[in-house]
Simulated scan of single mutants.
Amino acid sequence: MADSSSPPPAAEAASVITPINLVLLSLFVVLVYFRLKPAKPQTLPKAPPPTVFRTFTPPELFPYNGLNGMPVYLAVRGRVFDVTAGKNFYGPGGPYANFAGRDASRGLACGSFDEDMLTEDLDGPLDTLEDLGEEQIEAMRGWEERFSEKYLVVGKLVAVGSDEAKAAAAQR
């Protein structure tokens, strides 16, 4: 005779399948899935376009002011720097924005960000900076050194109509 105190075998099986056990089993299956799921392949960020060292005249440099998706370039003592990484400072709305796409030598030397520090006639001769004092020249060299350490030199600034400008135009 069977023991009357033990439940029949079907009742034991039914007691294992309870709502809480089903929730726990589902959670276990989900955790195992996420643990064993293959990871998404890593993708590298898109490389910036290559920068080619080139010769600029002031009118050619002017569009590189950060507007219309253009990079931000500025020149110091004839060297053109790509300061796009510092767009918050040199790009539109930044404190040094008036130097973008221009020769910033005089303004940096004088510690002035005023428009009158910039060459007005882009087709005219480059600023020779001959009237600057020793302190101003030293300040400008300090800025140039800082730019050299931080930013890429992408070209050189020459006057419109110079032999270098004509040679550069012939190569393009």
Rank of each mutant, 00 (worst) to 15 (best):
V30H: 06
M1D: 15
S105E: 02
A97M: 09
A109P: 01
F56K: 03
F62D: 14
A170L: 12
R77P: 07
G133M: 01
P19W: 04
F89K: 00
L157A: 07
R79K: 14
D131L: 05
V83Y: 00
P38Q: 06
S6L: 11
R106N: 01
A2T: 15
A75M: 03
Y96M: 10
E164L: 07
F53I: 10
T51W: 04
P49T: 08
M70P: 03
Q171C: 03
Y33D: 11
R35M: 07
L129R: 04
E145L: 08
M1Y: 13
P7V: 14
G155N: 08
F147M: 03
R141H: 11
K40W: 08
S162A: 07
M1L: 14
G91M: 04
L122C: 12
A13M: 09
L36R: 12
W143F: 10
L27V: 15
A165T: 10
R146S: 15
A11S: 13
A10F: 10
G111A: 04
A159R: 07
V154N: 02
E60I: 03
S5D: 14
S15N: 12
V52K: 09
D131G: 10
S6Q: 14
K46P: 11
E134Y: 03
M117H: 06
T84V: 07
S15W: 02
F53T: 13
V76M: 05
V30W: 12
F113A: 10
K166Y: 05
N68M: 10
A11Q: 14
F56Q: 06
G78I: 06
A139C: 12
A100Y: 05
L74A: 04
R172F: 00
F53M: 10
P45C: 02
A97C: 10
V158G: 01
M117A: 11
A167K: 15
V83I: 01
S4N: 12
M70C: 04
W143H: 13
K37E: 08
A47D: 14
F56V: 09
F89G: 02
V158I: 12
A104D: 01
V52L: 07
P49K: 03
F53N: 09
D123M: 05
A170D: 15
L31E: 14
P50I: 06
T43I: 09
F62K: 12
R106A: 09
L67D: 13
L74W: 00
T18I: 02
D121Y: 01
L44R: 14
L24K: 06
P19E: 08
K37R: 15
P48Q: 08
